[in-house]
């Protein structure tokens, strides 16, 4: 156990940094919502999606416009947090049954159609105590100042803030500009595996498959994983036929995809 002393010291330092960086969270609340997948949770400093922080999710390629996978990812994370969720859209194009399918039922979600004031509505929600999270569908640019405001508002109440970055432009460079978000994710669709692995010719659709990229994380390295999209409990799974291989497989797969 040579490393345990060093680990404890590191943990202590991290705690101190966390205390300096942010106000205390509401008592009794965990500091993060875990994915329930060690491969992902271990890569994140807080062991999951940190509460009291802003996280960005964007689609990839043509899905930059619709952010469908991004919305599903945010919903599946919030399905595991208790409390109401505020979902802010410029104009409402969500189909709520899909959110219910990953565990975020309609009883928990309050929707706001905020036109050009998505950020203001998000901030309003983040300043209200007790919400599990606020999801905002942010079209186009998100300035450093605006993201900083959201981050501060989230720190104050401990709610999770998701900014779903959408743009009519595929892979819009504006989405790569720096922001105050603690993590930045990109979700891309990948061809899914046959529904019955032993019988590839059987028609039908299995679970959708994503490449989940962690582009930026405070205290973490950029990583990417191949995952199967959230199930009825809102849980991601490592792609079955790739789960036992080392992470480098994912990179190779990207080259092929």
């Amino acid at each position: 156990m040579a490393g345990s002393g060093r680990t404890a010291l590191l943990e202590d330092l991290r705690d101190q940094v966390a205390r300096i960086e942010r106000r205390p969270l509401a008592p009794g609340r965990a500091t993060a919502i875990p994915f329930g997948l060690p491969a992902l949770d271990d890569a994140l400093h807080e062991g999951g999606i940190a509460r009291g922080a802003l996280h960005e999710i964007a689609g990839s390629g043509p899905d930059t416009e619709h952010g469908a996978a991004a919305a599903l990812l945010a919903a599946s994370v919030l399905a595991h947090a208790a409390g109401p969720v505020l979902w802010v859209s410029p104009y409402f194009d969500l189909f709520a049954p899909a959110l219910a399918e990953v565990g975020l039922g309609p009883d928990r979600v309050l929707h706001v159609e905020a036109s050009r004031n998505v950020l203001a509505a998000m901030e309003e929600g983040l300043r209200h105590p007790g919400l599990a999270g606020v999801v905002g569908e942010v079209p186009g640019r998100l300035s450093l100042t605006a993201s900083r405001r959201l981050q501060l508002a989230a720190e104050g109440t401990g709610a999770v803030a998701f900014a779903i970055r959408r743009s009519a432009r595929h892979d819009d460079p504006a989405l790569a500009e720096p922001s105050a978000a603690v993590t930045r994710w990109r979700v891309a669709s990948l061809p899914s595996a046959p529904p019955l692995p032993w019988s590839p010719e059987t028609p039908g659709l299995g679970r959708a498959r994503w490449r989940l990229e962690l582009l930026r994380a405070r205290g973490g390295e950029p990583r990417s994983w191949i995952v199967e999209c959230p199930d009825a409990q809102g849980r991601l799974a490592l792609a079955a036929d790739l789960a036992d291989r080392p992470p480098a497989e994912g990179q190779r797969h990207r080259a092929a995809g």
Partner: peptide
């Protein structure tokens, strides 16, 4: 969690019809 105050503030700002649940 009482979200009524939040609902009221959002409704005052964006109009009552634009704050809703599904």
């Amino acid at each position: 969690v009482d979200i009524a105050p939040l609902v009221d503030r959002l409704a005052a700002r964006f109009g009552a019809g634009r704050v809703f649940r599904v």
